[in-house]
Every structure is written in C-alpha cells, then in structure tokens.
Design a protein around this nucleic acid. Structure first.
Length: 716
DNA sequence: ACTTGCCGCATTTTT
DNA sequence: TGCGGCAAGT
C-alpha cells in the first residue's frame, strides 16, 4: 500500500538535515507516547512535519491516512499542511491535519445519525450561543438583570469542557446560586440545540467523545485508522479534548504531544495544564524530549524571557538558549501618557524603516483590545500604515452574520436560532408578539418554527401578521427548494435579492450601510473560492466558515504595514521588532487576574509569550498616566519589568521620576494646581510627602509624588 | 412594531 | 470614552 508515496524527500538524511540532536530524536521516536517539551521558537513545527515525513518514508506499511495531526488554530493547521506537503507531496492530502473542531465536524458529519443529529447540523457562533442562552432564560422566566446570560453561557461552556451533562453538573459539588441557575438553563439550552439540529463549539468535542463512548464500533474504526497521532499546543487542551485524544490513541498508543506549560495562557477558557504536566503519569512508558535551543530570538531577549518566567512556581526547569548572539538590549520607555507612548512607537518604527526595514517587521502587542485605539489614532495621524489583527473580525460583522444566518436556515430548516435572527431582517413586521405565538404553537404541536410559520393562521395569527409570516415562510421555502444543485455563490445572490436584504442596504443613505454592502461583496468572493474548490454542499461551506476566524486570513497577507494585536493573538507568531505597550500593573498583570497566584502566573506566561515573539529588538513601554474609559489612572510599571535584569535593558523616557531627587526649591507642575515650588519634604519612599506652594489661587498643598503625576520643570 | 434616548458597563477569546 | 441593551414613547 506504500505506492502512494510520491515523496519529494527520499532519504533519512534529507529529513533530518539541519536538526539538532533533540529535534532529530523527536523525529525518529515514532513508537509509543512521546512528549515534546518545546520552548518558544524551538522549531517544533519543523519537528512535527518532519516526523510525519519520516513516518511516510520509513518504507514499512504506514499510510498517509494513518496520520492525524491536531492543532488549535486554522492557521497552525494550514501551515503544517503546507509544510508537510512540501515534504511528502500529494500524500499530505490523505492525512488529517486539522483543528480539534474541524476534525470533530468531519467525524460527526459521517456519524451524526447515530447520536440523534442529522448531518446538516448547524454550528452556533459565540453570539448565537449567548442569544440562545438568553432565549432559554426568558423561557424559564429568569430575570436577566439578576443573572447575566453571558455568565450563564460561560458556565455552560465550562461544564461541556469538563464533559458534564446538565444532570452531572448539577450534582457535581458545591454550587452558588448562579451555578444552579446555569445548570437549569443548560438543560433547556441543550434541548433547544438538539431540536434545532445545532451544536455549539463545545458540543463538537463533547458529542464526538459521546459518540465514541456510546458506539465502540465507531471508536474502533478511528482508533485503527489513526495509528500515529500528533497534538500541538497540548498545554491548551481542556478535559474534553484530553479525553478525545486518549480515546483515539488508546489502541496504538503512538501519541506525540507537543507543548510548553510556560505558554499556557488559556486556563481561563478551560485549558487544563495538568494534561501536559501529568502526561508522564498517564503514559508511564512515555519518552520526554526537551527542545531548548531557540532559533528565533537574540540571546538578550531570551535571557529576559528566562528571567521573567523563572518567577513562576511549579514549573519544570527549562532554559532557552540561542546561538544567534547577544543582540541589542531591550528598550524600556517610560511614557507620560498614551499619546506619548504612541509617539515613541511611531518614532521607533520610522527609525527602523529609515534604516532599511519594513513596516511589516514591526508589531505592537497589547494586553487588551481597548488599548489599540490610542495607537491607532496616532498611526492615522502620522499616516503610518497599520493593520489590526483580531478584535472585531469579518465574521463578527452584523451583515455577515445575518446573511450567514439565512444560509444556515436554508441548509438546516430546523435551525430555529438562525431563523429567529433573520425573520425580521429586513423589517417585515414580524415582531415580538408574533414570534411568541409561533413558538408556542410550534412547541405545542411539535413543529419546527419554520413549519409553524407555514401554518400562520392555525397558530392563531390574524390579518396582516398572518400574511406576512406566511409570505416569509414561502420565501424561505422557495429558497430552500432551489438550493439543490446550485452553487453557494448563486444561492447567496438569490438570497440577497429575494429577501430584500441587498435592497435594504442599497436604499439606505447611511455610510455604514455602504460599507456593509462592501462586506457582503467580500463574502461572495469567499463563496466563489469555495465553489471553485468544491461544488455544492452548503453545509460544508457553513461549517468551514463558522470554524474559520478572520484573523487567519489576515495573517496570510504580506502587505507592508505595522501589525497590531493582543498578546494572546500573537502566540505562535514571530516578528523582527516587537513593541509591548502598556506594561503596567492592572494591565499586565491585568487587574482581574490579581486575586489568585495562578492568575498572576498566567499573566506572567502571557508576558513570556509576548517577549519571545521578538527576533531582533524588543521595546517595552508603560505610561505614568493612562486614561481608560475616560478616567485617569496612575499605574505603576509592571512587576514583570522589574524581573528583567537591568543589565539587559536600556531605559529612556520622561518618567525617571522614581530616581528624581526631590528637594526644596524644585519647580514642579501639578496636573490640577499648575506650577509650584517644593518648600518641604516629609517621609520617604512611597510615603514621601512634599509641601508645595502653588499660585495664590491654590496656595500650599501636601502632595505625594507616588500618587500624583508631578512633572519637574527643567532649567530651574 | 419600530424608534429614540438613557443608563451602565467595560480582559484575554485558538474554535 | 463609546457601545450595547432596555424601557418608554410614537
């Protein structure tokens, strides 16, 4: 069966060329469980892809379809696919190199009937999830002010990540009020999903595990198929994903996981670090290989990263090193405020470009999306090309969601959630009351919402309302019936025209609606490319797009612009020049992570991830004064900054205030009281208190420099 | 049924 | 500071 090997790499030498000893041994240790502890930038993707090539090349009976490689992001999956293809050619297309979620969709599409679903099931996006939870809570007469649907949704998601059914969740342990509410809502929510023939992201994993547990024959099939299993970013797996991997690998036990617990930054999302920590306990025969040589960053950057991460407790000792040489020192800039911070970034980017660099070499990393605004404004003003990665994405846009909801409703007529979203968009006069009546009628008679709409009069609707609903039903039914044999692009066009959606935007005079039209046009280029690749299968198109984040597309572009993204979004990427902005207490570490040690340590991991993105030069900035949500804050520099050995850094900036020697006679400017002169000193350190005489209007005040933004006036 | 205005709130978010 | 959700008004 080894005839499929159209391998472009023919011998072992080529596969292992350029690898260090550890990497080579990771590539060649193919049998049994293997844990690769891969530090940042240690070439793990290279190791994974070559390992797969090696398996193909061994000359025994391993077939491409015996290979499974699971990643978390589409970007990682695509990258790995490309690189494997370069190594083994055509054979790559028979391997499963995909994300957890797309793997589960593939399996569930085949086996849906076995677990009470149809194979055209819908997939809810994050928004659908919250609105469905909300709907469930309304049905159960919960006060939405007392219990936040988003929190309830969060809890349900957490339960699913732990593979807990509503009943088990209810039973499990001590519960606060919101937990018991969530448990009740969970039941209702799940019933809604099932009757809509829909799954949320968490279900994709959960249901697959469920399928395997209840259908040993199916499990056996996949266990036999996947002889060699690889899991990337293993530190980010949650309980459900762990179970899934365990089940799949149970037969051959050729499980290779790659991860780095120092880069675990998704615990708040259910990622369970003990999965990687306990790997050796789960698989006593496991081989562990550490990759500590970093091929990305300068020695200085790595020293800083090592120094910071060392402050975390309970980590396995690991020390990244580089053969790249020392490189430049880290630049730490103390800004006065956000605009000063932005000006610094702009100046340094311009400097880099003036020295022959590209804008696209530079990336600005921040902790929270809200921070991007100040930088963005400054970039606009300075006419600096930039591109924001993440944040509001293409598929988050309302018009895209609306249109996708139409398509979802056409692919899966049971999809109540999508139908509810679009039945009155554009406005047709189908309001709250009408919907209520239809839903009640549907439930009483065990009909889907769409079916109920087809019997508007029976449902008790009268006159205009009945007619509108009936018309809507005819509209959807008509579109549904025509989809057979039609390309997704054509169906999209028909939908836009017949539903009046396009018309609604075209006749609008609002500028944002023109943008929306533009976005919809963009969507049809997406459908066209899908149609070119694969004909028909609307459900496949929908699954593909709902599992695909816009960020994935963006990073593929090579336009010459400064990138801006959150530190989370930067994981797995690398850039020659990195700016970490807002390296302040309450931002990094974030105020909401301060109450637990684990919280702070995860923030430190995030800091470590951000630092290790930089190849050549790293800038860290913080502001003495930051206005957030219109309020002025005085933040201390991040504790993580003080964990970096001073010898590795070069400080600059306005605020060297900590070192200012306060003395009588010094002239200062106070943000409220204006210019004044220090007339007395009391206390020391953080408690230092100055007596300052301002203009006669304000008189003499006691001021703590620690708490107030004072500027020393030069030339005095 | 739809529009307007006010209040409150505001991490990170691979899928 | 700016957006989204909700309640009162047309």
């Amino acid at each position: 069966m080894a005839t499929v090997q159209t391998t472009t790499l023919t011998d072992r030498k080529a596969i292992i060329s350029g690898l260090n000893d550890e990497q080579r041994s990771a590539v060649e240790t193919t049998e049994g469980p293997l844990l690769i502890v891969a530090g940042a930038g240690s070439g793990k993707t290279s190791v994974m892809t070559r390992r797969i090539a090696h398996l193909m090349n061994r000359g025994d009976d391993v077939d491409p379809w015996n290979i499974l490689a699971i990643t978390f992001t589409n970007r990682a999956a695509r990258e790995m696919n490309e690189r494997v293809e370069q190594l083994v050619g055509e054979a790559a297309s028979d391997m499963w190199i995909c994300t957890f979620h797309s793997m589960c969709v593939k399996i569930l599409r085949r086996e849906a009937e076995r677990i009470g679903y149809q194979n055209n099931f819908s997939i809810l996006d994050a928004d659908d999830q919250v609105s469905t939870v909300k709907q469930s809570m309304l049905d159960l007469n919960y006060d939405l002010k007392k219990f936040d649907p988003a929190v309830v949704q969060w809890k349900i998601s957490a339960a699913k990540n732990e593979l807990l059914t509503p009943r088990e969740w209810k039973r499990a342990g001590r519960k606060s009020l919101i937990d018991s509410v969530a448990a009740t809502v969970y039941t209702e929510y799940q019933a809604k999903l099932v009757s809509s023939n829909a799954m949320d992201f968490d279900d994709l994993i959960f249901r697959t595990v469920d399928l395997f547990l209840t259908h040993p024959d199916v499990l056996k099939l996949y266990q036999q198929k996947f002889r060699y299993i690889h899991v990337d970013e293993y530190q980010d797996t949650n309980r459900a994903q762990y179970k899934l991997v365990r089940l799949l690998s149970d037969r051959h036990r050729n499980l290779c996981v790659v991860g780095d617990s120092d880069q675990a930054i998704y615990r708040w999302r259910g990622a369970d670090i003990s999965n990687i920590v306990n790997f050796e306990r789960d698989y006593p025969e496991a081989v562990v290989i550490k990759l500590e040589q970093n091929y990305r960053s300068t020695g200085t950057i790595l020293d800083a990263a090592n120094a910071v991460i060392q402050n975390n407790s309970q980590r396995k000792d690991k020390r990244l090193w580089s053969a790249k040489g020392e490189g430049e020192k880290l630049a730490i800039y103390a800004a006065l405020d956000q605009s000063d911070e932005a000006v610094y970034v702009i100046a340094k980017v311009q400097e880099h470009v003036a020295n022959g660099g590209q804008f696209s070499d530079c990336t600005v990393l921040y902790r929270a999306n809200a921070q991007s605004r100040a930088i963005e404004e400054a970039f606009l003003q300075a006419a600096m090309p930039y591109r924001i990665i993440g944040g509001m994405t293409f598929y988050d846009r309302r018009e895209i969601k609306d249109v996708m909801a139409y398509l979802k409703a056409l692919a899966n007529p049971q999809d109540e959630i999508s139908l509810l979203r679009i039945c009155n968009v554009p406005k047709r006069g189908i309001g709250e009351g009408t919907i209520r009546r239809l839903l009640d009628f549907a439930h009483e008679n065990e009909l889907t919402l769409l079916e109920a709409m087809g019997r508007a009069q029976e449902a008790g609707l009268v006159g205009g309302a009945a007619e509108t609903v009936q018309n809507f039903h005819t509209l959807i039914q008509g579109l549904h019936d025509m989809q057979e044999g039609m390309s997704v692009t054509d169906l999209l066009q028909q939908t836009l025209t017949r539903t009046g959606y396009r018309d609604m935007l075209e006749t609008s005079h609002k500028e944002e609606d023109q943008n929306r039209l533009e976005n919809i046009r963009e969507l049809s280029t997406v459908t066209r490319s899908f149609d070119r690749r694969r004909r028909g299968a609307l459900a496949d198109f929908l699954a593909e797009t709902s599992l695909l984040f816009d960020t994935d597309k963006e990073t593929g572009k090579t336009d010459n612009a400064v990138r801006m993204m959150t530190m989370h979004a930067s994981k797995g990427l690398e850039f020659p020049v990195v700016f970490m902005i807002g390296v302040e207490e309450t931002l990094l570490p974030h105020a909401r992570s301060l109450d637990t040690i684990e919280g702070v340590e995860e923030e430190r991991n995030l800091c470590y991830v951000a630092i290790t993105r930089a190849r050549e030069k790293l800038h860290l900035t913080y502001c003495a004064e930051r206005s957030l949500f219109g309020q002025c804050q005085l933040n201390d520099p991040s504790r993580f900054l003080s964990e970096i050995p001073p010898a590795l850094t070069e400080r600059s900036g306005a605020d060297l205030q900590v070192q200012i020697r306060w003395g009588v006679g010094l002239s200062v400017r106070h943000p409220q009281f204006g210019v004044g002169v220090v007339t007395d000193l009391a206390g020391s350190g953080d408690d230092l208190e100055l007596t300052i005489t301002f203009s006669s209007r304000h008189g003499t005040k006691l001021v703590k420099p620690k708490l107030t933004r004072l500027r020393v006036i030069d030339g005095q």
